[in-house]
C-alpha cells in the first residue's frame, strides 16, 4: 500500500467510456472504480471486449474517459505517463526495423532525450542497467526479431524500466511464453514489485490466483476481489455463462486448471487458465 500521505499509484473513480457516442457514454466501461497503492501487485481479468485494454489506455492517457476522474501517481494521466512503464500485449514494434535490442530499450528514454543522432552516455548506461536488471544484458546488440517470446518480454520490461518507471503495467505478459520463461518472468515481476506497484492484465486465472495481491474483475463494470474470492461463480457471472475448469499438469508456475466459459462465445477467454478456487 502507499505510504501515509502518498497519493495512490492509480486512482480511477467512476470512469465510463465509449468509442461511439451512439452507443451512449458507458458502452465499454461503466462507472469503474480502481485504486492501486504503492507496492500493490494487481491483476485485471475479464473476457475479451470487457474493457481491460481500454482501461489501461485510459490510465496511460492514450484515451480520455467520458465520465469520471483518473489520477496516476498523483497527476493527470498525460502528465504522469513518462513515469509509467508499459509493456503492451502485442508490442507494435516493427521487427523489420534495423535496430538492436539496445535501440529498442533506449526508446524508454525518448521522453528525456529525443533530439540528435545518438543518445547520451547516461541514457545508454540507463538502458544497459535495465537490461542487466531483467537478465538480458547479453542480448543488447541482437536484433529484437531474433529473440524468443520470453526474451522479448524481458526486453520490453527493460524498456519500460528504462523510463525510470514508478509504476509498471503489463498487458498479457505471459501470452506466448513457455513454462520456464513464465516462471522466470513471474520471479522478475515479484522482484520489481519490491520497488514499484505492478498491474497485470491477463487471461491467466492461475497466475492471478497464485501471484497477485488483488484482482479487478472487469466486464464493462468492475469489481475488486482478493484472489481467493475469484471463484467459479465469480468467473461465471463475469464471463456471462457457466464456467468449466479442466485440470492439467505443470504448465507454468505450477497452476493446474483451465477455465472454459460457456453461453457467450464472444465472451470466452481464449486460452484462459486457472487454479481451482
Amino acid at each position: 500500500m502507499s505510504g501515509a500521505g502518498d497519493p495512490p499509484a492509480i486512482d480511477v473513480r467512476g470512469v465510463s467510456f465509449s468509442f461511439s457516442p451512439r452507443e451512449g457514454p458507458r458502452a465499454v466501461l461503466d462507472r469503474v472504480d480502481f485504486v492501486v497503492g504503492g507496492r500493490d501487485f494487481v491483476g485485471i481479468i475479464g473476457p475479451n471486449g470487457g474493457g481491460k485494454t481500454t482501461l489501461v489506455r485510459i490510465i496511460l492517457g492514450l484515451l480520455d474517459p467520458q465520465e469520471g476522474s483518473v489520477r496516476v501517481l498523483g497527476a493527470p494521466p498525460r502528465a504522469a505517463r513518462r513515469s509509467v512503464g508499459y509493456v503492451p500485449q502485442r508490442a507494435s514494434i516493427n521487427l523489420a526495423a534495423p535496430a538492436s535490442v539496445l535501440d529498442v530499450v533506449l526508446m524508454g528514454r525518448l521522453g528525456r532525450s529525443s533530439w540528435g543522432w545518438r543518445f547520451p552516455r547516461s541514457d545508454r548506461e540507463a538502458a544497459l542497467a535495465s537490461l542487466a536488471l531483467t537478465g538480458t544484458a547479453e542480448l543488447a546488440q541482437r536484433p529484437l526479431a531474433s529473440l524468443s517470446g520470453g526474451q522479448r518480454q524481458r526486453v520490453l520490461i527493460a524498456r519500460a524500466l528504462c523510463a525510470d518507471a514508478r509504476l509498471l503495467i503489463l498487458d498479457e505478459p505471459t501470452a506466448g511464453v513457455d513454462a520456464e520463461a513464465e516462471r522466470d518472468l513471474t520471479e522478475l515481476l515479484h522482484r520489481l514489485n519490491e520497488r514499484m506497484p505492478i498491474v497485470i492484465v491477463t487471461h491467466d486465472i492461475g497466475f492471478v490466483a497464485s501471484e497477485v495481491g488483488s484482482v479487478l474483475c472487469l466486464n464493462r463494470r468492475g469489481s475488486v476481489h482478493r484472489p481467493q474470492e475469484v471463484t467459479g461463480e465469480t468467473l461465471a457471472a463475469m464471463y456471462g455463462g457457466s464456467v468449466r475448469m479442466i485440470g492439467h499438469d505443470g504448465c507454468g508456475g505450477g497452476h493446474g486448471v483451465h477455465v472454459h466459459a460457456h453461453g457467450h462465445a464472444d465472451r470466452e477467454p481464449p486460452g484462459a487458465r486457472g487454479a481451482a478456487p
Partner: peptide, 22 residues
Amino acid sequence: LLFHKRFLAICLDEEQCALQGV
C-alpha cells in the same frame, strides 16, 4: 541529424513514441 531518434522511433513503435511524449 536533428530528428533521427524520433524518425527511427516512429519507424519502430508509434505507441511507445506517444507514451514518451513524441
